[in-house]
Simulated assay, not measured.
Amino acid sequence: INIYFILPKNDNHHTTELAIISYDPNELISKATEIHKKYSEKIIKSSLYQLPSGYALIFTIGYARSTVAKKALLKTCATDNVIINKIKEYSPLLSSTPFEKLNYFS
């Protein structure tokens, strides 16, 4: 299972994106459930995509500016940004309500 994240370089943006990619739907469900529990009040939207060899779940998470300062260990990663944008551009969207769709896998 791979997790990618985007942190904006610009302080005016108050959202970040997080992508979970997995070949195994059961693994995806397990990790997605963890993240959903942790960030449920902050998740603005989420989408499930079909990849050639698995699935990608992308969350948009809202946060307060002060939270970013506390998360000094998280660094903006251009590679993650490219990966997430490519998934959204080239992969078919399975569901914009992915938690309902994930139930079909289990």
Rank of each mutant, 00 (worst) to 15 (best):
I1V: 11
N2C: 11
N2S: 12
I6R: 09
L7G: 05
L7T: 07
L7S: 06
P8L: 04
P8W: 01
K9C: 09
D11Q: 13
D11G: 10
T15S: 10
T15A: 05
T16P: 09
T16R: 13
I20P: 00
I21D: 05
S22I: 03
Y23D: 14
Y23T: 15
D24F: 04
D24P: 03
P25E: 03
N26C: 09
N26Y: 10
E27S: 13
L28S: 01
I29R: 09
S30L: 14
S30V: 13
T33K: 09
E34K: 15
I35N: 07
I35E: 09
I35P: 10
H36F: 15
H36M: 13
H36K: 12
K37E: 10
K38W: 09
K38Y: 10
Y39F: 14
Y39R: 05
S40H: 10
E41M: 08
K42A: 08
I43S: 04
I43F: 04
I44P: 01
K45F: 09
S46C: 08
L48P: 01
Y49V: 02
Y49Q: 00
Y49P: 00
Q50W: 00
L51P: 02
P52D: 04
G54Y: 03
G54R: 03
Y55V: 00
A56F: 00
L57N: 00
I58Y: 02
I58H: 00
F59G: 03
G62S: 11
G62K: 12
G62H: 07
G62P: 03
G62T: 07
A64Q: 15
S66N: 11
V68F: 10
A69E: 12
K71R: 14
K71N: 14
K75V: 08
K75F: 05
K75C: 01
T76W: 09
T76F: 13
C77A: 12
A78M: 13
A78K: 14
T79Q: 10
D80G: 05
N81W: 10
V82F: 10
I83V: 14
I84V: 03
K86Y: 15
K88E: 08
Y90H: 15
S91Q: 06
S91M: 07
P92Q: 12
P92L: 05
P92G: 02
L93T: 06
S95P: 02
S95D: 06
T97Y: 07
T97I: 05
P98K: 04
P98L: 02
F99K: 03
E100A: 11
E100H: 06
Y104T: 15
F105A: 09
